[in-house]
Design a binder for these strands. Structure first.
Lengths: 193, 193
DNA sequence: TTAATTCGTTGACAAATGTCAACGTTCTTT
DNA sequence: AAAGAACGTTGACATTTGTCAACGAATTAA
């Protein structure tokens, strides 16, 4: 189960991992299975763990006054789940995170994560991840103020085609900030062209 | 001119700065004056410098096919300017950055920034900044998919009242992702309540 | 000082999106 | 196998937002 993570770390760093490094990593990341719809984190809690998804699909979302859900993130295997702000600042999160599909994850606490910073490949990977995360958020902000829904959907389909295969359209619609009806019509228009 | 930066670094870190640290910082950050509307960075270039704004106001924006500008960021003194992705990845930026008001900035190259990582307070500040930046982007993504314009504007007015005083409304509108006419009407409705 | 821009507002209308209801299909669960 | 739920689509209509034009006030430049 940890092999996927080790492979992932190697591919996101340039320095080598010693046997003892791998040992330490294996001990720090605890395997956990999540049933369909099982919460990994609920709004109001402090996010105690980051999860590396080995298998499955998860979503991060808020719920507003009217009970409507807003997807801020959709993730599948090879990606991470957890609210960064809550995790690093130890403040209560406003997001729920749950498993959309039955999932297998490797979870780690903040303390253990800090321990692992002593491993060069780990800290390298972490900062690379932080960068990529920030770049992706920046692009999403930019497209949200610049592009019509049609383009936002097309870009998503091109950049992350896996997400369209794994999540139903009403979650994709929420992720894009529109209703499922609007996305349905936008898709209809796109096909015509 | 550097005093403001030093004060800023101190307030964003817990470790002390030695005299030689301050010396090194002063040498790494080069003062630069920008006239009104002068470019700090143009789309297509690689962002060679990060700028700490000592005085003035700057904006970061893209320009689409139709010539419309989209403000991804509005910053004033005590904030930073520069496209993080271009700066760290050495890729061409898609954003223009220019001075909205006459400004004084302190600029630093990536190489010099890396040098400064040896100063604990500096690296501490940098990671704190990265975090705050990511948290702010996350919030903006969330509000863009969850909140109506009215609430987005009210939140902005509450969180960053300075921005409303320093930038004209059509730039604020662009920052929120709506036209100036829409913002004008939204404000009108807000006042009635 | 005068002339030219920029800025914010407003009205009329078009376009995009949301809301609500209905429907058939597919997928789950029993 | 049957029943229920989830999903995606469509229509009718309301609401929001965009577009274009015009206007006056404030700001800037000549």
């Amino acid at each position: 189960m940890h092999e996927f993570l080790i492979k992932y770390i190697k591919s996101h760093s340039t320095t080598l991992l010693s046997e003892s490094d791998i040992q330490l990593i294996n001990e720090s990341f605890i395997p956990k299975k999540l049933r369909k719809r099982q919460y990994f984190q609920q709004a109001g809690e402090v996010c105690k763990y980051m999860a590396f998804i080995v298998k499955g699909a998860m979503r991060q979302y808020s719920v507003d006054d009217k009970g409507a859900e807003h997807m801020v993130r959709l993730s599948i295997e090879g990606w991470w789940a957890g609210d960064r702000e809550s995790f690093t600042m130890l403040t209560p999160t406003i997001y729920n995170i749950d498993a959309w599909e039955e999932s297998e994850v490797l979870i780690i606490t903040k303390a253990d994560m800090n321990q692992l910073r002593s491993i060069p490949a780990m800290s390298e990977m972490a900062s690379q991840l932080d960068n990529n995360h920030a770049f992706a958020l920046q692009k999403r902000v930019h497209s949200s103020i610049s592009d019509p829904v049609e383009k936002r959907y097309a870009d998503l389909a091109k950049t992350y085609p896996q997400l369209l295969e794994r999540f139903p359209q009403h979650l994709i619609a929420s992720y894009l900030g529109v209703t499922k009806e609007t996305l349905s019509r936008v898709r209809h228009n796109l096909i015509k062209k």
